[in-house]
């Protein structure tokens, strides 16, 4: 097989793999773009968000916060907490990109979203140089797709003032439901999700500015503590069994 043939195969696979995810973020992109305009962002500022921040959840939450004149530290802290799951993605991918030169690492990090991570950890993923090509191609395709739907949202938001009442935010809720529910296969994760849900309602009713941060941190702590407790119990059981023998 020639090099060209293999490359075109990688690109083709990347295109097909990322296509459904490109479609799933359409309502989300439109909502992000139009929300920014409706909250008084200039077109340039609204463009800067998807081009540089490139993170759906952060963009949505932060657009509201900026519009409500929230203090900068609250905005940045909220961003850090929402993005904290990306620490894990980098950590998990590091070994796979061990021999990759620095500037490629920067581009992969920039393109590293929940969606790209889901694809790159797939069991049938490409190896070595092809993995790099695959990741950069699918990541860029996803990036430009995100940019285009944000721009469409910005244009639509400038002409149709009532776009946010269409219920586009349901697309976000349901995407997260579809991502979270299958991960609940153990008790600590179940506890995390329940606590996050109850706390988010409680803090929102009481209009706490850091509601998202506090709910997330409390839920993560509950999940982590229950994980440790269960682990301890299992260790104790196996130790007891060992001593009987």
């Amino acid at each position: 097989m020639t090099k060209k043939y293999i490359y075109s195969k990688v690109v083709k696979k990347g295109f097909i793999d990322i296509l459904p995810l490109n479609l799933a973020v359409i309502p989300w992109g439109i909502l992000c773009g139009s929300l920014a305009i409706q909250h008084g962002f200039s077109i340039f500022e609204a463009l800067l968000m998807p081009s540089l921040v490139f993170a759906g959840a952060v963009q949505l939450v932060v657009t509201e916060l900026i519009a409500n004149n929230t203090p900068l530290t609250t905005i940045l802290f909220t961003t850090l907490i929402i993005s904290s799951r990306h620490f894990l993605y980098g950590l998990a991918l590091k070994r796979r990109f061990n021999n990759v030169p620095g500037h490629y690492r920067v581009s992969i990090a920039f393109l590293l979203t929940d969606e790209l991570f889901a694809l790159s950890t797939h069991r049938k993923a490409f190896q070595g140089k092809l993995r790099l090509l695959y990741a950069i191609f699918t990541g860029s395709f996803f990036y430009f797709n995100w940019l285009i739907w944000n721009i469409i949202g910005i244009v639509a938001g400038s002409y149709l003032p009532d776009l946010t009442t269409l219920g586009l935010d349901f697309a976000i809720a349901v995407t997260f439901i579809a991502l979270v529910i299958p991960t609940i296969n153990n008790i600590p994760t179940f506890i995390t999700v329940m606590v996050a849900g109850v706390c988010s309602i409680y803090f929102k009713i009481n209009h706490w500015q850091l509601d998202l941060v506090i709910s997330s941190v409390i839920a993560m702590s509950c999940g982590y503590l229950s994980y440790r407790l269960i682990e301890k119990k299992i260790n104790k059981k196996t130790r007891d069994k060992g001593s009987v023998k």
């Binding site: 979270v180 309602i201 993560m220």
Partner: peptide, 20 residues
């Protein structure tokens, strides 16, 4: 890293529950 393991479900749930 165990603590961070719970950040995905926690953050995403804290975002979708209020929307619903």
């Amino acid at each position: 890293s165990q603590f961070l393991n719970f950040s995905g479900p926690a953050v995403l749930t804290a975002i979708w529950v209020p929307i619903v």
